[in-house]
Structure formats: structure tokens, C-alpha cells
Simulated scan of single mutants.
Amino acid sequence: MTQTFKLRDYQTQAVEAALAHFRHGDDPAVIVLPTGAGKSLVIAELSRLAKGHVICLAHVKELVEQNHAKLLATGTPAGIFSAGLGQKTNTAKTTFASIQSLSASLASFQTPASLIIIDECHRVGMDDSAQYLKTLAHFRRLNPNVKILGLTATPYRLGSGWIYQHHYRGFARPAPSSFFKTCIFELPLQHMV
């Protein structure tokens, strides 16, 4: 059943910020949306708009399933690659995957991706052997210009600090070794209250 979702103003702004950012460069970027702000709708819209192959990563099967369902509801087909959900499809234009399943099966993914979206991207570690970084390095070998977008409600990690280096409002964060370069959109929590 196809549903039409009308994105809220801030969801549209987040999508437009991602499109504008990636038209001008390939630096990994972050969108910060508070819990309940509809990250899965932003992910669905960006996946729908993308020209090439899209990989959407999450660390738990519930997020893989939720994000997949939002895109399917728009009438856009997509696959799931997740042992926890009992599906391992890697041929769809958009694949929603658990990082654990995908990182253990990188040889099955030889099609270059144009966009990688990471839900709960604050989980991307700094250690090069970590699942996320190993997976991202694989897709960067296939396409050095792959666009990498993270979404999170928590852009600060205890123990390691900010997950990005620059904010679109002009200030820098003390995070010289962070994977993500720029926060391209942030919705303040008070907007949701």
C-alpha cells in the first residue's frame, strides 16, 4: 500500500541541506534531529531521490525494519540485508542493512554505492578496524566519491566528544579526528516541544 508522506518543514530543510552539501563535495556530513523528529522519513526521502545505489545502515534490526518500511510506504522498492530479520537481499537500488550483517559480507557488495546513510551515526567509531569504518572503506574503494550521510539525535559522545568538526552555523568543534566533517542541519529540541 502506497502512502504519501508530507514532510514537515524541518524534514524538508534537512533533505535540502543534504542535497546542497553533496552537490558541492564529498565530505561526510551529519544531520542532527531529536528523537521523534522523523529521521526515518528523511532517510526515505533521500533514498527515493538518490540517483544511484543506496546503502542505509543501522546497528539494530528494529531500525533497519522501520527505515525500510518508511521507504516501502512511498511505493519505492527496497531490500533488506540483515541476518536478524532473516533476509539477505543485496540487489535492490536501496538496501537497508544491519552493520553487523553487511560488514561480515562485504564480498557480496561489489556494486558501487552513490549514497550511504547511517542511522544513529554517533556509533561510528574512530578505530579503523571497527565495523562501520571497515564497511565505509570498502564502499569508498568501489566509489571514491560516495556520499556519506549520518543522522543522529546525539552528536556528542562521552569519552570521545563531538562527532563532527564544523557546524553549518559557522563554528568549529574540537574534534580533529572525527569521521564526519560537517553538521549540515540541526533541529533544536525546543522546536519539537
Rank of each mutant, 00 (worst) to 15 (best):
S40Q: 08
L41D: 03
L46K: 01
L7K: 09
V30N: 02
G25P: 08
T4F: 12
S40P: 03
D26N: 15
P28E: 12
L19N: 07
V32T: 14
S40H: 09
L33R: 00
I43P: 01
T12P: 04
D9W: 12
A20N: 11
D27I: 01
A14Q: 02
T4L: 14
L33C: 05
A14G: 06
V42N: 00
G36T: 12
A29R: 03
T35E: 11
L41I: 07
T35A: 08
L41G: 01
A18T: 09
T12N: 12
T4K: 10
I31E: 06
K6E: 15
G38Q: 09
S47K: 02
A20F: 13
D26I: 14
Q13F: 10
L7R: 03
A44E: 02
I43N: 01
L41A: 13
T35D: 10
G25T: 13
V15F: 02
T12I: 15
L7P: 03
P28Y: 07
D27M: 07
K39P: 04
T12E: 15
R8Y: 15
G38F: 06
A20M: 11
S40F: 10
L41H: 14
L19I: 15
G25Q: 10
L46Q: 03
S40D: 09
T12L: 14
H24K: 14
A18L: 03
P28N: 07
G25M: 07
I31A: 03
A44T: 01
T12Y: 10
L46T: 05
D26K: 13
G36H: 12
A14M: 08
G38A: 09
V15P: 00
T12D: 14
D26M: 13
V32I: 15
F5V: 13
P28C: 05
G25H: 06
K6F: 08
A17W: 04
P28I: 06
L49R: 15
A20V: 11
D9M: 02
A18H: 09
F5H: 15
L46C: 04
V32R: 00
T4Q: 14
V15I: 13
D27E: 15
F5Y: 15
A29I: 10
A29V: 07
L49G: 02
L46S: 02
A17V: 07
T35G: 04
P34K: 07
A14T: 08
G25Y: 09
K39D: 08
A37E: 09
V30L: 09
G25L: 06
V30R: 00
L33N: 03
Q11T: 11
R48C: 00
A44H: 01
G36L: 08
L7V: 11
F22Y: 15
A20W: 13
G25D: 11
I31H: 03
L49S: 10
E45K: 02
E45P: 00
L46V: 08
F22N: 01
Y10R: 02
A17R: 00
K6W: 08
S40G: 07
A44P: 01
L46I: 05
E45S: 01
K39N: 12
A44S: 12
R8F: 11
G36N: 14
H24W: 09
V30D: 04
P28F: 08
A18N: 05
A18G: 05
T4Y: 13
T12K: 14
A37T: 11
A37H: 07
F5R: 01
